[in-house]
């Protein structure tokens, strides 16, 4: 399989504090990669490096490279606006815009200059179907997205990302604010998407990582400890720390 995204010696400092310590990690094209580790291990920080969301935080220094399609996304010529269209992101808290469901989904397309009603309608239907929420909202596409439940809002957020057809989708603990049934639905959504997208998800929930991911990377104290096929990580980890974490001895 080809790699779509690689990080080389990626380090991140909050002021003087080193939050990521020289992470080298390759992501394969298509499939789901889970990033696991205890709180504060740097997995979310790492995820946010991949579409430069950390740029928004003052006092952050990043060294090393993140190569996406053979281009370093931290190169000065990189257009972060374009980058984020190719690498979409879903957050921990569902954050639909306070507009209608329809408007939420077409937002990225409209900004990209698509105004053809038929194309927008088609994109809305396709994205909402991919996000497995079409049947629940098809009769009220023009209702406020904030009137939906948390789980539904999160799936609308996923549809919003899918509508602009990114290559990679980053999920930052996208199910941790949801109830188990909604989480389950999001998981199924992700499983349906794994053939067409490269999905990188940060999760605290190890059962979830083992259920849905193809590969798993374990982080501890800002370092990448181990990365392998999910089955290998959970059944037969190489490093002692990984074993301790997945067997619930800490974290």
């Amino acid at each position: 399989m080809s790699t779509i995204l690689t990080t080389e010696n990626l380090s991140l400092f909050y002021g003087k504090k080193e939050a990521l310590k020289g992470v080298n990690l390759d992501f394969e094209d298509r499939g789901i990669t889970a990033l696991i580790g205890p709180s504060g291990c740097g997995k979310s920080t790492f995820l946010r490096c991949l579409n430069r969301m950390n740029d928004l935080i003052p006092n952050v220094t990043i060294t090393g490279e993140v190569n996406f399609n053979q281009h370093n996304i931290y190169a000065p010529t990189m257009d972060t606006v374009q980058l984020r269209k190719e690498i979409g992101m879903v957050f921990q808290q569902p954050n639909p815009f306070p507009f209608s469901i329809y408007e939420n989904v077409v937002y990225g397309l409209r900004l990209a200059g698509v105004h053809d009603k038929e194309r927008l309608d088609a994109a809305v239907e396709k994205s909402l179907k991919q996000a497995a929420i079409w049947d629940e909202v098809k009769d009220r596409l023009h209702a406020n997205a904030l009137s939906l439940s948390g789980g539904q809002q999160q799936r609308v957020c996923i549809a919003r990302v899918l509508a602009v057809e990114p290559d990679i989708i980053l999920l930052d603990e996208a199910t941790s604010a949801l109830d188990p049934i909604s989480s389950r639905m999001i998981e199924e959504t992700l499983l349906n998407l794994r053939q067409d997208y490269s999905i990188i998800t940060v999760t605290h929930n190890m059962q979830q990582a083992s259920r849905i991911s193809d590969r798993t990377a374990f982080f501890l104290n800002g370092e990448l400890i181990e990365v392998n096929d999910t089955k290998q990580i959970f059944m037969n980890p190489v490093r002692q720390e990984t074993n301790d974490y997945i067997s619930g001895r800490f974290g």
């Binding site: 579409n51 969301m53 928004l56 606006v81 374009q82 980058l83 984020r84 269209k85 979409g88 992101m89 957050f91 808290q93 954050n95 639909p96 815009f97 306070p98 937002y107 990225g108 900004l111 957020c157 919003r160 990302v161 602009v164």
Partner: peptide
């Protein structure tokens, strides 16, 4: 909420 701004940036808005 800052969530809204993040959502915008993550969609590729300046």
């Amino acid at each position: 909420s800052d969530n809204q701004r993040e959502a915008g940036y993550a969609l590729g808005l300046s």
